[in-house]
Amino acid sequence: MKQLTDTEIRVNGIAALIASLGEVQAERFISLILREPFDYTQWQKKLWEDTSLEDLSRMAMDSRRETKKTQAK
């Protein structure tokens, strides 16, 4: 995988947010992140703490299958 520049990461991140949330909600998300003290690392540690490894694996495989279906269309 190619190493991305900081600018490319920002552009790709914004594009992903807009694709997922739409323009208005993506802007809202960004303003929420900027407004509140937010530690992404701590959030990630707590995000899946009540989910088993098997469940996480199943969710990842389901997501990958869905992505492949969508890309094939």
Rank of each mutant, 00 (worst) to 15 (best):
S57D: 01
S31D: 09
T67D: 04
E27A: 11
E49Q: 04
D55M: 02
L21W: 02
T67N: 03
L53K: 13
R10S: 11
M59W: 07
M59H: 06
D6K: 14
R10N: 08
M59F: 06
I33Y: 13
D50N: 02
Q44S: 05
T7N: 15
V24A: 11
S63P: 03
Q44T: 05
F38H: 14
R28K: 02
Q71V: 00
S57P: 00
L56N: 05
W48Y: 14
M59S: 07
M61S: 08
D6A: 15
L34R: 13
K2Y: 10
T7Y: 15
D62K: 00
Q71N: 00
I14V: 13
T51L: 05
L34G: 12
G13A: 09
K69M: 06
A72V: 01
L53C: 06
R65V: 02
K2N: 14
S20E: 04
E8S: 11
R10W: 07
F38N: 09
L47M: 11
V11F: 12
E23Q: 09
A16K: 06
N12S: 13
D50M: 01
D62P: 00
S31I: 07
K73M: 13
R58N: 07
K69C: 04
A16E: 09
A19F: 08
T41D: 13
E36I: 05
R35K: 15
E66P: 03
L17V: 10
Q71G: 00
E66W: 03
T41R: 14
K68W: 05
K45I: 12
E23M: 08
K69I: 07
M59Q: 10
K68F: 07
R35C: 10
M61W: 07
L34E: 14
R64G: 01
